[in-house]
């Protein structure tokens, strides 16, 4: 029995590059076209917030759970956000069970950074008793199908799940904290969206498919917030982007992010 290798046929690479020369892609898109996005929220009953995102054939599920815990000693009056992404074998024969690998960790780190630096959740409003009890927000991401650009799909899923998540109300009686059945939306302050570009040869495409990911030299992910500010940036792969390219992509990504933000569910707290 053998393992499937990360090898793209040289012929396919040639085809992808020859098509890009003409400004086309294998699936019929233009270089700066994002695939169709479909977001379904509230798919898991037992979670406080959840979403399934379909990005072409890529599919990701996100669940938000809340837990009460003591705050971190260095931030006594703020809740915490913990993002965890797992690429399970269900998604692709390339993924295996076991401890998270580099790809899993990169996804969870980039999603975490985008949500955190855009201040999507108002963590300070998650405090129950200052210095003693706060809400921890756990975002769990699972890839269900891998056809490239898991990062943007995970970001969309995590944000959609958070925007529609509800936390239980609490009542404080002396030393005792009672969790009520009544629920309220979690405090939302912003939105985050990520756009991934892949550089194949001298050409740049947005939202790479699995085959394009195998053929690419470098990858650049830019996260934007509601006002179009760049809140996070991540570069991967062994190739490079010139500084002019990065500035240009920053502008192109902004246009695409505006379209994507309109597809996100409306936050419950608004």
């Amino acid at each position: 029995m053998s393992r499937i290798e990360h090898v793209i046929p040289l012929i396919k690479q040639k085809t992808i590059r020859a098509l890009l020369e003409k400004g086309e892609r294998l699936d019929g898109r233009k270089p700066m076209d994002f695939r169709d996005v479909e977001i379904n929220v509230g798919v898991i009953d037992s979670a406080e917030g959840s979403a399934i995102v379909n990005l072409g054939n890529t599919m990701v599920i996100a669940g938000v759970k809340l837990g009460m815990a003591s705050p971190f000693p260095d931030s006594p009056n703020s809740g915490a956000l913990i993002v965890n992404a797992e690429l399970i074998p269900l998604a692709s024969p390339l993924f295996e069970y076991g401890p998270p690998k580099e790809e899993d960790i990169e996804i969870s780190r980039v999603v975490d950074r985008g949500i955190r630096s855009s201040k999507l959740i108002d963590l300070e409003k998650l405090v129950i008793v200052t210095g003693r009890k706060v809400w921890f927000v756990y975002v769990d991401l699972y890839a269900l199908n891998h056809d490239g650009n898991l990062l943007d799909a995970c970001m969309l899923a995590a944000v959609s799940a958070l925007l529609t998540a509800r936390k239980p109300k609490t009542r404080i009686e002396g030393d005792h904290i009672e969790i009520l059945d009544e629920k309220e939306p979690i405090p939302i302050g912003n939105t985050a969206i990520s756009i991934t570009f892949a550089k194949i040869g001298e050409y740049v495409v947005v939202d790479p498919t699995y085959e394009e990911e195998l053929a690419m030299d470098a990858r650049l992910t830019i996260c934007y917030d509601k006002e179009g500010r760049i809140v996070a940036i991540q570069k991967g792969g062994s190739g490079y982007f010139t500084s002019e390219e990065v500035i240009d992509l920053g502008k192109k990504g902004l246009e695409i992010s505006r379209k994507l933000i309109s597809k996100l569910p409306t936050p419950l707290s608004e």
Binding site: V7, I8, P9, L10, I11, Q13
Partner: peptide
Amino acid sequence: ELKDYLNIGDL
């Protein structure tokens, strides 16, 4: 050199 005849990624 075997890779002169068929290399990784060849179909």
